[in-house]
């Protein structure tokens, strides 16, 4: 119980920190970086539900991110639609496409699934890149509007954008938290552990996998839509495989299949990369090997490593306690026996 309270406190402190962060730094550039990190985190949570909790490594995640971003951009710039209507539609478009692709791709497993989604990702990227008349090809799309006003609230300043993204991030975390800690989440974990076993205990694995695939693409689309209206211009690069690899790196470093992993990994890497500006293009020289080493030695990343360490320590303590109890008991027994003898 104390542990839970502690955990709750940490979360509360983090939320408060996120809320006051803009006032602490008072630096538009840092706010910009943080907003961007939040957007990535939303995408990483999507990937985490699928790859981390259900065991399906999708390499098409950047593609869905791009679909969300391009849908929003096209609906607002070309169709001149109301921003929030476009926003909702962008999420629906991404999810529906996710459902169609999930329906087919989820019939494959393990490396076939990874290769399949890799190819799907490429198709999405190449279509965006080549479909000049719609997407503007390599030139991309410019003039994407900032999020529309909600009543009196405008989203023209970095700070207001920061809070908008933070709002969506908190919702994402809450939703993912609730999914993971529900029977539905347990179902996903069961599928990850063994799909055969899950099926024999009566779980409709296909239905569940499809559901989680759609949620995963939904979050990718949400991140994409927020990105488009935050950066205000997009190009085909956002759908390229390197974005998927970035998201995957954040997830693995933070801890795949853990709730805090996406936050820890993304913020850590984004800030370290910021500090190592000079390394910007070469940051993967550091993070690439880290990714590989983590998978070999700490497959559940920083967060998972911490959880395991804590669990082991708890167990050791418990064993110690048991041992002491036993020793005490046997000591009592021997003393009782010697008393008898004596």
């Amino acid at each position: 119980m104390a542990g839970l309270l502690k955990q709750r406190n940490i979360i509360a402190v983090l939320i408060v920190f996120a809320i006051v962060f803009p006032f602490i730094t008072n630096n538009n550039y840092f706010i910009h970086i943080m907003t961007l990190a939040f957007i990535w985190i939303i995408g990483v949570y999507g990937l985490n539900l699928l790859a981390g909790y259900t065991g399906y490594l999708s390499l098409a995640h950047a593609g869905f991110f791009a679909i969300g971003a391009y849908s929003l951009a096209l609906l607002t710039t070309k169709a001149q639609m109301n921003y929030w209507l476009a926003f909702v539609l962008a999420l629906i478009i991404t999810s529906v496409l996710g459902m169609i692709i999930g329906l087919i791709s989820l019939r494959t497993k393990e490396h076939f699934f990874a290769i399949y989604t890799l190819c799907v990702g490429y198709i999405i990227y190449l279509v965006i890149d080549k479909w000049d008349s719609l997407t503007g090809g390599v030139r991309g799309l410019i003039g994407i509007p900032a999020p529309g006003n909600i009543g009196p609230i405008e989203f023209n300043t970095p700070i207001s954008n920061y809070y908008l993204v933070l709002f969506f991030l908190l919702i994402t975390v809450l939703v993912v938290y609730r999914i993971v800690h529900s029977l539905t989440g347990r179902t996903y974990i069961a599928i990850r552990n063994s799909e055969d076993l899950a099926q024999t205990i009566g779980i409709n694995t296909m239905k569940n996998k499809l559901m989680v695939f759609v949620i995963s693409t939904f979050f990718a689309g949400l991140a994409g839509a927020l990105y488009a209206s935050f950066i205000r211009f997009i190009g085909p690069d956002i759908g390229y495989i390197t974005i998927t690899f970035d998201l995957l790196t954040y997830l693995i470093v933070g801890g795949i299949g853990t709730l805090s992993g996406p936050v820890i990994g993304t913020i850590l890497i984004v800030w370290v990369s910021q500090q190592l500006q000079f390394l910007q293009d070469y940051r993967m020289m550091i993070f690439g090997p880290i990714l590989t080493l983590l998978v070999i030695f700490y497959p559940r990343g920083i967060s998972g490593g911490f959880i395991d360490w804590r669990a082991k320590r708890k167990e050791k303590k418990q064993n110690q306690l048991n041992l002491e109890n036993q020793q005490m008991l046997s000591a009592q027994e021997t003393s009782a026996a010697s008393n008898k003898n004596g």
Binding site: V175, R178, I179, S182, L183, T184, G185, R186, T187, I189, A190, A198, I201, G202, I203, M211, I215
Partner: peptide, 19 residues
């Protein structure tokens, strides 16, 4: 073991998100 009884339950994603 908890998930073993999942097949006798009906709650879905909606139930999960809205507790």
């Amino acid at each position: 073991v908890i998930v073993g009884h999942r097949l006798r339950t009906k709650s879905n994603l909606f139930d999960a998100i809205f507790r």
